[in-house]
Computed example of a mutant assay.
Amino acid sequence: MNNQEIAEKLKEIGALLEQQGANPFRSNAYLRAANTVAQWPRPMAEIIEQHGFSGLTELPAIGEGIARSIFEYVVTGRMSRLESLKAGHDPIELFEQIPGIGPTLAHRLIEVLHLDTLEALEVAAHNGRLTQVPGFSSKKVELVQAWLSHVLGYRRSSSRPQEAIAEPSVALLLQIDFLYRKKAAAEELPKIAPKRFNPDKEAWLPIMHITRKDWHFTALFSNTPRAHQLKKTDDWVVIFFYDDQHHEGQHTIVTETKGSLLDKRVVRGREDECRKYYAG
């Protein structure tokens, strides 16, 4: 792949962010990065081969988040952030490319943790949630961490291999969830046409970009096979997030159907924190 091809992908992300009403700073950042890549005299693949991930972040207008997208595209031929914005990527196929994860484990990642991107999987692999999924032993988790480190370009200190990754608070995530569902119900959000489960290519899926407390959020209803099977496409809300230090991840918020949190909005994977939130 050449630099022009990578630049076109970055421009597409910038254009989608602009169309979907994201913070102009975010869309402009991708457009500036696209210009850098298109005009750079050396191929991005050559820079990665010789200098690794850090070689990308030394280029003008290339921050860590955009560098990870470039790194991932050079290594795997995919750009998860672009696929997520289009809401048409297949997380099963995405996770199956990881050594040791077949169709069964890929489905479990989605059904148990509601993961949809490599970035979200990376967060779960380092904060302990991945061990909640049957079939993920400590050894397999380590293999997943190593593969994601290679593909996403992360550079973690060897002395702190399990360093916790910053995430928005449960209270903030629930606020974003409430705001998204309120605006979606009032028809105040732009809509996109997901590729999956949308034979008529109808633009039906509301999407919201918003910045709160130094976190940048993208929220949309879940369009996974499981959500359609259980008729939860107007209940399950997927929230992608990242901050200015490029900590990023994803959570799904649902209406709980059992237990002490019955009928309450719950951040999957952070149920204990939700109990404390509602108790307080």
Rank of each mutant, 00 (worst) to 15 (best):
L189E: 11
T211N: 00
T257P: 00
D200M: 14
Q175I: 06
E256I: 00
E187W: 12
D200G: 10
I165R: 08
V237T: 14
V141L: 08
D234T: 12
S138V: 07
L148T: 06
Q229T: 10
V238T: 12
S137K: 10
G259A: 07
T211R: 03
R270G: 04
L173Q: 05
T211H: 00
R226P: 06
T218W: 03
Y180T: 02
I192F: 04
L262G: 01
L152A: 15
G259N: 08
V151C: 14
P161K: 11
V144H: 05
K195S: 06
H246C: 12
S157A: 14
G259S: 09
P225H: 10
S138E: 13
K264E: 09
V267P: 03
E256C: 07
G269D: 00
P199S: 04
E142D: 14
I176P: 05
D272K: 11
S138P: 04
L189A: 12
P199M: 08
H251C: 02
R265P: 01
V267L: 02
V170G: 01
C274E: 05
K191V: 08
L205G: 01
Q162S: 12
K213M: 08
E273S: 04
I239P: 01
A185R: 15
G269M: 03
R156E: 13
S222V: 09
A186L: 14
W215T: 05
E256G: 03
I176G: 02
G269K: 00
S169N: 06
L189Y: 04
R265K: 13
G259F: 05
I239H: 05
K264Q: 13
H216P: 05
Y180I: 03
T224C: 14
A171D: 14
H246W: 12
S159D: 15
E256R: 08
E248Y: 05
S157E: 15
L230W: 08
S158I: 14
F178V: 02
Y154K: 15
R160N: 11
W147I: 06
S137C: 00
S157M: 13
Q245K: 13
L152M: 15
E187K: 15
I192S: 07
